[in-house]
């Protein structure tokens, strides 16, 4: 499968933060979710891709082309939705569409008009009067209206209500499924990622901690519950996020498939219980989980 995006060894040094050798790839027609706590490097990574930040090292290839040499061509084929929208607040929605249209060779005014209608956006409304959710919808409408092949989204759902969030996520799924579109989406709302992503990458302290198929991650990681006093190294080594209380103890493992056979007798006896984790648990295990 061809990769639409290949990021290799991306490095950017700030005084208090270093993006340290970030390597990512997105196969065509798939969604990659970038998960990380605030300040881990999600936005820095995306800013490099959008040429808003110059990296100190590493390379970015999008559609098989180097980002520096082919910026204009690449940007024509990328739809971008940032965490904040920078539009003229005293201009109308329709004016904003016309204004940005000149930057895109494949701008589709008919599509823009019908997206406004589908999203319930009034073309004669001033942008400054739009709610936060409506501004994000406008951003999506603009991004989709120049027929992108890759959507890059930085925390697009932050601060949105669940109805609009779900609507935008469904649009991204349709973009992938109906147009073979590819998506790179960052979020600290792991629920959004788990819903739509094919692959996930966890970024912690400027480094990529995991980059794998989402279902692989959810099969490898489980939460184990132990009868009081029975948690010990014979059964399980490398538990993270261990917590004990009066009625048992719990820990998170990233090697469940190896362990499964070893703990099956204890599971049948009711001494160990296994529970699915969500991506939040995995993120927390990396941020404060102790060692593997």
């Amino acid at each position: 499968m061809d990769n639409v995006m290949e990021v290799t060894g991306l490095t950017k040094r700030y005084r208090t933060f270093t993006l340290d050798g970030v390597t990512l790839e997105i196969p065509k027609g798939t969604i990659l979710g970038l998960i990380g706590p605030n300040g881990a490097g999600k936005t820095t990574t995306i800013r490099v891709l959008m040429k808003m930040v110059r990296p100190d090292g590493g390379s970015v290839r999008i559609f098989g082309m180097g980002l520096d040499a082919h910026e204009k061509e690449i940007k024509n084929r990328v739809g971008y939705v940032g965490e904040e929208q920078f539009y003229y607040l005293n201009k109308k929605v329709s004016w904003t569409g016309r204004f940005v249209s000149r930057y895109f060779e494949r701008w589709d005014q008919g599509m823009f008009d019908s997206l406004l209608e589908e999203f319930g956006l009034d073309p004669s409304q001033r942008v400054g009067k739009l709610s936060k959710g409506m501004k994000v919808k406008l951003s999506f409408a603009i991004a989709f209206s120049h027929h992108p092949e890759l959507m890059i989204l930085d925390e697009p759902t932050a601060g949105l209500d669940p109805v609009i969030r779900r609507e935008m996520l469904d649009r991204l799924l349709a973009f992938r499924d109906d147009h073979e579109g590819s998506v790179f989406i960052s979020s600290h709302i792991t629920d959004d990622i788990v819903r739509i992503a094919d692959h996930v990458a966890f970024i912690v302290d400027g480094r990529v901690a995991i980059h794998a198929e989402k279902d692989e991650v959810l099969s490898d990681w489980k939460r184990l519950h132990f009868k009081p006093g029975t948690i010990n190294g014979d059964i399980v080594t490398g538990l993270r996020c261990v917590e004990a209380h009066a009625f048992g103890s719990t820990g998170v493992t990233n090697r469940f498939r190896e362990l499964e056979g070893r703990i099956s007798a204890a599971v049948s006896a009711g001494d160990v219980k296994v529970e699915n984790v969500d991506l939040d648990d995995v993120l927390i295990a990396f941020v404060k989980g102790g060692r593997a």
């Binding site: 519950h225 009081p228 048992g248 009711g270 001494d271 219980k273 529970e275 969500d278």
Partner: peptide, 28 residues
């Protein structure tokens, strides 16, 4: 007594507790 609460279970939490206490009684 061993009580494990699962956030991903389809059983509501009060039911998980009730069932596990009953279970502990049944098992002695």
């Amino acid at each position: 007594m061993f009580i494990a609460i699962s956030y991903s279970s389809s059983d509501p939490m009060h039911r998980q507790i009730t069932d596990q206490v009953k279970d502990a009684i049944a098992r002695g």
